[in-house]
């Protein structure tokens, strides 16, 4: 204790005694919950709490174990980087020391889907076309899909939309030479060059999947005449017209044509 300035500051001796009391407080007032906190432990020892095992009948403490609680770093990925090649060890920068355990998000699939969709559909046209909005495609609409691998574009009634992120697919039904034909198309596949709305359903279908259209009673039949009429309005029969000037659905305009 510093006694020199006692004459100048008579209450200064209180400071040291209070300081000592503050140090002792940690030892004197230790409850069960904080029993492990203040103890001198090696710096490399992670934090822990005591888990108490109690006797089921007497409710008395039977034993206690240290349960370690390592610091957990939650990742918050917004964009993900897709690694296409194994990393090269020669040009590597040293990794930083991790502050604790890295806890990834519990549901990675939506983030993965979002990143894949951003890669496969940078303009957002395909996403907008099948969004659950008024402008979006609904079951019952007549669609036409142009395939990149050549061949005639396939048109048909959309029977179902299977929404599965990047794997979203549509099922079209048509009659070719009086035989019912159904085709699945992956919306975000690069092979699907374009999707056009030929005709919208008159009213909203009250089913998610119009499987009843397969029954003869409800079958729409061939949609070739609808396609013909649509082509006429778009003036596709004119040899010099450009498809970009045509008036079609909002999303279909942006859909890529080969």
């Amino acid at each position: 204790m510093n006694v020199a300035p006692l004459s100048g500051r008579p209450l200064a001796c209180l400071k040291t005694s209070v300081r000592r009391a503050r140090q002792q407080k940690a030892f004197l007032c230790r409850s069960m919950a904080t029993g492990s906190q203040g103890r001198a432990s090696p710096s490399s020892l992670p934090d822990y709490n005591f888990y108490q095992l109690k006797d089921q009948k007497t409710k008395k403490l039977r034993s206690a174990f240290a349960v370690y609680t390592p610091p957990t770093v939650k990742t918050n990925p917004t964009t993900i980087t897709i690694v296409n090649k194994p990393p090269k060890p020669a040009k590597r920068t040293p990794e930083p020391k991790l502050p604790g355990l890295i806890a990834p998000p519990s549901d990675p699939l939506p983030i993965l889907h979002a990143s894949q969709i951003a890669r496969m559909d940078p303009t957002g046209a395909r996403t907008a076309l099948f969004a659950k909005t008024k402008q979006g495609v609904r079951v019952g609409d007549v669609l036409m899909v142009t395939h990149r691998r050549g061949g005639e574009p396939f048109a048909g009634v959309c029977i179902s939309i299977r929404r599965a992120g990047i794997d979203t697919a549509i099922l079209l039904r048509n009659h070719l030479s009086k035989v019912g034909v159904e085709m699945w198309f992956k919306v975000y596949n690069k092979n699907v060059a374009g999707i056009e709305i030929i005709k919208r359903a008159r009213r909203r279908a009250r089913r998610a999947r119009l499987t009843y259209l397969r029954k003869p009673k409800h079958d729409v039949g061939s949609v070739s005449d609808l396609v013909f009429a649509w082509k006429k309005t778009r003036k596709v029969f004119n040899t010099k017209s450009s498809p970009a000037s045509s008036k079609t659905a909002k999303g279909a305009k942006a859909a890529k044509k080969k």
């Binding site: 030892f27 230790r30 029993g35 432990s41 020892l45 992670p46 403490l61 206690a64």
Partner: peptide
């Protein structure tokens, strides 16, 4: 960290064996 945890474990094991773990938790004569 592993070595420190092992040492701590041995200490605590002894406390448990001697039935004094309650003392350790309540902070008596720590």
């Amino acid at each position: 960290a592993l070595e420190a945890a092992r040492e701590r474990h041995l200490e605590l094991k002894k406390w448990r064996k001697d039935k004094r773990i309650e003392m350790l938790l309540s902070g008596e004569n720590v």
